[in-house]
Computed example of a mutant assay.
Amino acid sequence: MILHILPESDWPVAELRPASLATEGFIHCSDPGTAHLPANRLFRGRADLLLLEIDPAKLDVALRWEPGSPPIPDGPWFPHVYGPIPAAAVVAAHPFPPNSDGTFTLPESLAHR
Rank of each mutant, 00 (worst) to 15 (best):
P7R: 13
Y82F: 14
E53Q: 14
M1P: 10
F43Y: 15
P97I: 00
V13L: 11
S30V: 04
D55A: 12
D101W: 05
I5C: 07
H4Y: 06
R46M: 08
T103K: 04
G33D: 15
D10M: 08
H112A: 12
T105W: 01
I5W: 09
A92G: 13
P56E: 04
L42Q: 11
L49E: 13
K58R: 15
K58F: 09
H36D: 04
R46I: 06
E53D: 03
L37F: 03
H28C: 08
G45M: 02
L42N: 14
L21M: 09
E66D: 12
F96K: 06
I2G: 03
W65E: 13
L110Y: 01
H80E: 05
P76F: 05
W65N: 11
I54A: 07
L6V: 01
E15Q: 11
P95Q: 08
S20H: 10
S30I: 01
L16W: 14
P73A: 06
E53I: 14
V13K: 14
A111P: 03
E53G: 12
E15Y: 00
P67F: 01
S69Y: 11
F96E: 06
E66N: 05
S100D: 13
G25V: 08
P18S: 04
H36W: 12
V61I: 10
G83N: 10
A88T: 15
P38L: 02
L52G: 10
H80L: 06
N99W: 08
P95V: 08
L106H: 00
L3K: 07
P38A: 00
M1E: 13
A47S: 13
A87M: 07
P73D: 08
A93P: 04
D31I: 15
G75H: 09
F26Y: 15
E66C: 09
A88D: 15
L51H: 12
N40Q: 12
P32L: 13
Y82N: 01
D101I: 04
L59E: 01
V90C: 15
P95F: 03
S9L: 07
E24P: 00
T105E: 11
N40H: 08
P79E: 09
G83D: 01
E66F: 06
L110R: 09
G83M: 09
L110P: 04
H112Q: 12
D101M: 03
D10V: 03
H36Q: 14
L50P: 07
S20N: 07
E8T: 10
G68R: 01
G102V: 11
D60R: 15
D101A: 02
A88P: 11
D55C: 08
V61Y: 08
P86V: 08
T34F: 03
V61K: 09
L52H: 14
D74G: 01
F104G: 03
V13M: 07
E66L: 15
I54W: 10
V91K: 07
L52R: 13
A57W: 05
P32K: 14
